[in-house]
Design a protein around this nucleic acid. Structure first.
Lengths: 122, 122
DNA sequence: TATCATTATATTTTTTAAAATATAACGATA
DNA sequence: TATCGTTATATTTTAAAAAATATAATGATA
């Protein structure tokens, strides 16, 4: 039982069971909390550039994440255009929005699991 | 439903939901798969030095992990001695063994969850 | 056709993490 | 008291990751 574990640790420290979850394609991670946030910010700002800035991430790194995402998808999850009125911009596909919802649902289930395990230390 | 997500991704890519889990003390991670393996190898080899080598980890890093572990525990999880017949050595406490079992049980439950979610892509 | 902010990409620089190296202390034993 | 392999610790070096910088291309619009 968990009570034993709590006994082992210092009582003045607040314990939490935490974790992370992601999707792997052929064993390689390509979709997790980072990519999800990036997709959400691209949808919000209409620009990879601005989305990256909001995450304090270089454009190049953001671009790499997006590339990997698109490579794993049947059709591009991020639609880009260059030139034009505001120099271009980007948006995310309907499928990308489904991916975001999927992740949040998965993470919510996981969070419940984590909370349940953490509660055993109370 | 998950079938929708599978539709979005390339069919020639094998998907897996994967993740990691750890214990945080006051919001800082101190116990996870790495520390568990290190404890197991110290128990097996009787030496921090050899355990670190088996993990292709520098002694210094191993020592840092052990320090953090001990700081979070009511009593030291790794017992060390220097000098003597073989220069000294290390062992792990009964409590450390309980921590190892605890983590494996937790990880098993998590793995079941991950497998269940992965199975939805089949 | 000049301008604009963006995408796309390569190259350089910086930062961070890790590893490697070095040194001292340790204590049982020969 | 010399030796051993270890713990403990600081310092230096290396490697990896990230960021910064630079440049070209893009195309709607004024």
């Amino acid at each position: 039982m968990k009570k034993d574990i709590q006994r082992i640790l210092r009582k003045d420290i607040t314990l939490k069971v935490n974790g992370s979850m992601w999707l792997e394609g052929n064993g390689k991670r390509f979709f997790g909390p980072g990519p999800v946030e990036l997709l959400e910010l691209i949808a919000e700002t209409g620009s990879i550039n601005q989305a990256a800035k909001k995450m304090n991430m270089s454009y190049k790194k953001a671009w790499g994440i997006i590339n990997r995402l698109n490579e794993h998808a049947a059709s591009s999850l991020v639609l880009t255009s260059q030139g034009g009125e505001h120099g271009g911009g980007s948006s995310i596909s309907e499928e990308a929005k489904e991916m975001i919802i999927f992740y949040h649902e998965l993470r919510n289930k996981f969070s419940q699991f984590l909370d349940k395990e953490t509660a055993k230390f109370k």
